[in-house]
Simulated scan of single mutants.
Amino acid sequence: MRTTGLSLVIGMFIAVRPGMAQSSATLSGRILDATTGAPVVAATIAVTTTGGSARTDSLGRYRLEGLKVGIHRFLVSAPGYSRGSVTLAFAAKERMERDLEIEPVAAPGTTGVVGADTARAQVLPKVPVTADAAPGRRFTDFERRRATGRGQYMTRAEMEAFNVYTLQDAMRNMRGVKFNCTGGVCRAQMVRAPLGCPPEYVVDERIDNTFGPVIPVRDIQALEVYTGVSDVPGEFAGRNSGCGVIVIWTTAGREPRRK
């Protein structure tokens, strides 16, 4: 998005219901262009569970207040971009900050390049692509850890190939992982962990033991599973690492900034 000699300032509209409880949560952050990392102005983020919505300002910032404790699904849209969605869980009085990315859509009949001379555009023959698509810059650490051979890993393509429908399905055949099921709910338990010692969930580089176990598989882009303290990389070592660590990368995560 470009502006020439024009200062764009668009107000942020926040949906706040009267009489919201003091225990309600807040979600804030920015909506970013997935290709350039630039802020997306006038994007809308809507809460499907409440009907509330917010619109980004000239810096791509948004803020949603009055969210009840529990799981909410958010839809992000903006002119010229594909729609995106993310599901997040909130605790009482939580103040979550999350930057979200959406993919730009090229206009039909153009090359997708701003300022391209479409009158002189030449149609090139189709070239078959046989190489796997690059996973993206945000998965650099995922690939580095997978190369060490420590832990167990699964990508989005592998989940689709194996017809995985839940997080439990994805981990069911992994070594050293079992499940304790009560009341129709199954929770992962590492074989080497003490009884009643649940694994730590890290979602997009943030500890989230509330949303992690129930995250929809459609939102998972990659998965790392470490069943014991000897497998856990240093960046995930902590007080619960002896119980195992499950690292989840979702569609909501951001690419790191280019230096």
Results as ranks from 00 to 15, higher is better:
Pro18Leu: 07
Glu65His: 05
Val232Thr: 06
Gln152Phe: 09
Ala15Pro: 04
Pro199Cys: 08
Arg146His: 07
Gly37His: 04
Ala134Lys: 12
Phe139Gln: 04
Ala119Gln: 12
Glu97Ala: 09
Phe162Tyr: 10
Thr3Glu: 14
Pro216Asn: 00
Pro256Leu: 13
Trp249Asn: 13
Val191Glu: 15
Thr50Glu: 12
Gly80Ser: 04
Ser241Arg: 03
Ala147Tyr: 01
Pro198Asn: 02
Gly51Asp: 12
Glu200Cys: 12
Val9Phe: 05
Ala134Gln: 12
Val177Asn: 05
Cys181Asn: 15
Leu59Pro: 00
Leu59Asn: 12
Ala116Gln: 10
Asp204Cys: 01
Ser23Gly: 14
Thr110Tyr: 03
Leu100Arg: 02
Leu6Glu: 09
Ala78Leu: 00
Cys243Lys: 00
Arg218Asp: 14
Asn240Ser: 14
Ala15Phe: 03
Arg258Ile: 12
Arg175Gly: 14
Ser77Trp: 00
Phe74Asp: 07
Ala157Gly: 02
Pro79Ile: 03
Met154Pro: 06
Gly84Asp: 06
Thr44Phe: 00
Arg257Phe: 06
Leu88Asp: 01
Arg120Met: 10
Ala170Val: 11
Ser24Ile: 01
Leu27Trp: 00
Arg257Ile: 10
Thr44Gln: 07
Pro18His: 06
Val113Trp: 08
Arg145His: 15
Ala89Thr: 04
Glu103Pro: 00
Ser85Arg: 02
Gly80Lys: 07
Thr87Asp: 09
Gln168Leu: 08
Pro39Val: 00
Gln122Asp: 00
Leu64Met: 13
Ala134Trp: 14
Ala46His: 08
Gly52Ser: 01
Val191Arg: 07
Val214Arg: 12
Ala157Leu: 04
Glu97Gln: 12
Phe211Asn: 06
Gly80Ala: 05
Ala34Tyr: 04
Thr140Cys: 00
Met154Asn: 01
Arg2Phe: 14
Arg192Lys: 13
Ile10Arg: 08
Val41Ser: 06
Val127Cys: 02
Thr227Phe: 08
Ile220His: 01
Pro256Asn: 11
Leu195Phe: 11
Ala54His: 02
Ala237Arg: 09
Asp99Cys: 03
Val245Gly: 09
Gly244Phe: 04
Glu158Ser: 09
Pro128Ala: 10
Asp208Asn: 03
Val245Tyr: 13
Phe162Glu: 15
Val229Thr: 10
Glu205Gln: 14
Ala193Tyr: 09
